[in-house]
Design a protein around this nucleic acid. Sequence first.
DNA 1: TTAAAAAATTAGACATCTCTAAAATACTTA
DNA 2: TAAGTATTTTAGAGATGTCTAATTTTTTAA
Lengths: 154, 154
Amino acid sequence: MDSELHQLYDLTGLSSNMEDYMEVISLLSVENRVVRVKDIAKKLNIKMPSVTSALNRLRDLELIEYEKYVFVELTEEGKKISGQVYNKHKQLSHFFHDVLQLNPVTADQEACKVEHTLTPEACIQLHKFMQFMKKADDDKEPWYAELRAVLVQK
Amino acid sequence: MDSELHQLYDLTGLSSNMEDYMEVISLLSVENRVVRVKDIAKKLNIKMPSVTSALNRLRDLELIEYEKYVFVELTEEGKKISGQVYNKHKQLSHFFHDVLQLNPVTADQEACKVEHTLTPEACIQLHKFMQFMKKADDDKEPWYAELRAVLVQK
DNA sequence: TTAAAAAATTAGACATCTCTAAAATACTTA
DNA sequence: TAAGTATTTTAGAGATGTCTAATTTTTTAA
């Protein structure tokens, strides 16, 4: 159990920016048939030449398959890493939305930033915490309703 | 009340690194009589020339008073900003320690990283959340004891 | 099938933040 | 007070990650 969680939250060894690229590539490869430089740039709010140079670095790290003018694909290693980042993201985004009651968009933005900094240990604890909170919500615990009321207040 | 909180958590407009410098300078000016380049470097785990160049930038921003070979002091604006960062830090460190049950050192490290990314809105919600949790702890709510038990488990 | 439009890349610059090596300044103590 | 030590700064380089302008390649459509 412990080792499973560790696997989920293992560090990638990538910079925040590179992790962002991996995550966006992963998202786009689900959303669209192909992953375009233009779309990566749009999602990350940067210009295309920045994407090209990032893709070259990610290819050198063997996290993507990429040749000039050809669409991008994740390698097995790349899928593993983007999956790890995405798991952290989901966890955090739930925390910010379901617990702290931020609106979904803000919760997502917040998760985007924090996901790169959380250590495996913190993720494991957050995971346990979120399970507890989810159960309280499902069981309609009165204290959980109170918490929600407090957080929704201006 | 709302505006008070906003003031506490307002963004500094500084990069993560610059915020770290401000925080360390603030800490050292409490700990020691004077703030030395050497000590800043040690706290941030970097070399002295990096500190010198950061100090020049912070002086240009009028956040510190600094002249070559003379000890560093925070300006009023600098105190305000380092205070804001420190408040976020304290909040987060409590969350990681008191709620998620990370050990104090890890909790502090985690806070150090996250403190630069949290928006004012998220901070406000976290603040409310922490107040609720503290009250539950003080009131010895059974569910709070359960939560703690879950989080302490391996 | 070829001209126009769209997409992507290259080239080169710039900001941030770090480093090492060497020089300058300040402090200490014999 | 002068020599030696500690501290700080300068100079210059390198990594990361961004940009604009110009060029190249691919796609589209007349």
